[in-house]
């Protein structure tokens, strides 16, 4: 376990700067998500931390130690790959024991640790199986157990839930969070799924085109996104211009709709599209030629707003998110 500090970390592939002067400092035991669209450099960033790519510039510190020149196998980092990368010729036990065997521990120590970690991920009854005989979710647990077994200073998870189907993924998110909080290991979690980032982390780093757009707690980045990219990448947002020319965003759930004109209405428009999805109903409203999205929690039985109906939109002043100039 360690504080992690990245300083001016830069990686180029030919002409392309994939990671551009990234600075991050993470205190011990934090769960950090690196969130961004594909090709934003998040995986490259992770691979530099792991030691599979050499940065062109900058440094990586674990506590006070610079690790840029330390080979991957000496960094003591646990990694869970997108493909899980379980050794197909080894059983669950053997996979989990693999990292421990590289560390010259006694057989008893290894056995005890393997047993403990396999219990943590609830895979005890499958420990004699080969990876091919396990489901995706089970393979995921083994991959996690294998990475945790070595008591890593840092855990790296590369889109490791993306291969699971939606329901299982949501279950695994909660469980993963529990396991990680118990093990108190500093964790970097690469994902392109904003919901996953919010569920899993204490801290979110939003990346785009190799640079960090914003860092902060899930609450900060969702409620106070700095710019249009962050606002639209994390959740949905409507963008407006105020009279003085600055732009601001309003989250769809913060907009109130009413059929009658009322005080403080900011916009009026016509409902062009309604989708009902159980807990919420989404309305698309055309206001001055712009589509505005509005979501209502279905607390009561559905309101009687209809397609084609004229409605008035209202939101509180502090729901307006001021955006930096592009």
């Amino acid at each position: 376990m360690a504080n992690i500090k990245l300083e001016n970390l830069t990686k180029r592939f030919g002409e392309n700067t994939v990671v551009d002067r990234v600075n991050i400092e993470i205190p011990n035991g934090t769960l950090v998500s690196i969130l961004g669209p594909s090709g934003c450099g998040k995986t490259t960033l992770l691979r530099m931390i792991a030691g599979f790519e050499t940065p062109d510039e900058g440094s990586i510190f674990f506590d006070q130690d610079s690790v840029v020149n330390v080979p991957a196998n000496k960094r003591n980092i646990g990694m869970v790959f997108q493909s899980y990368a379980l050794f197909p010729h080894m059983t669950v036990e053997e996979n989990v024991a693999y990292g421990l065997q590289q560390r010259k521990l006694s057989k008893e120590e290894i056995d005890a640790r393997v047993k403990q970690v396999i219990d943590t991920v609830h895979m005890k009854e499958f420990q004699k199986r080969k990876p091919k005989q396990l489901s995706g979710g089970q393979q995921q647990r083994v991959a996690l157990a294998r990475a945790l077994a070595i008591s890593p200073r840092l855990l790296l998870l590369d889109e490791c839930l993306s291969a699971l189907d939606k329901k299982l993924r949501v279950e695994m998110q909660t469980e993963l969070r529990k396991i990680l909080e118990e093990s108190k290991v500093t964790t970097f979690f690469v994902t392109h799924d904003q919901e996953e980032a919010m569920t899993l982390s204490d801290f979110i780093v939003v990346m785009n085109k190799g640079i960090i757009e914003q860092m902060g707690t899930p609450l900060e980045v969702y409620e106070k996104p700095k710019n249009k990219f962050v606002a639209s990448f994390l959740g949905k947002a409507n963008f407006f211009q105020s009279e003085d020319g600055t732009s601001f965003a309003v989250r769809p759930e913060k907009i109130h709709l009413s059929a009658e004109e009322q005080a403080g209405a900011r916009q009026e428009g016509v409902i062009t599209f309604i989708t009902y999805s159980g807990n919420i109903t989404s309305y698309t409203i055309e206001c001055d030629g712009e589509a505005v999205l509005c979501e209502k929690q279905n607390v009561q039985i559905r309101e009687n707003l209809k397609k084609g109906q004229k409605v008035f939109l209202r939101w509180d002043k502090d729901s307006e998110i001021e955006l930096a100039d592009e």
């Binding site: 196998n73 646990g78 990694m79 990368a85 693999y98 070595i150």
Partner: peptide
Amino acid sequence: VDNSLLEASSSLGASKVRTFFQVVLPL
């Protein structure tokens, strides 16, 4: 033999030689 297996082995602390004999060769 997927390259991620070699990286996994390396991240778990195995040297290149051990990775070869324990992962690449058997596979």
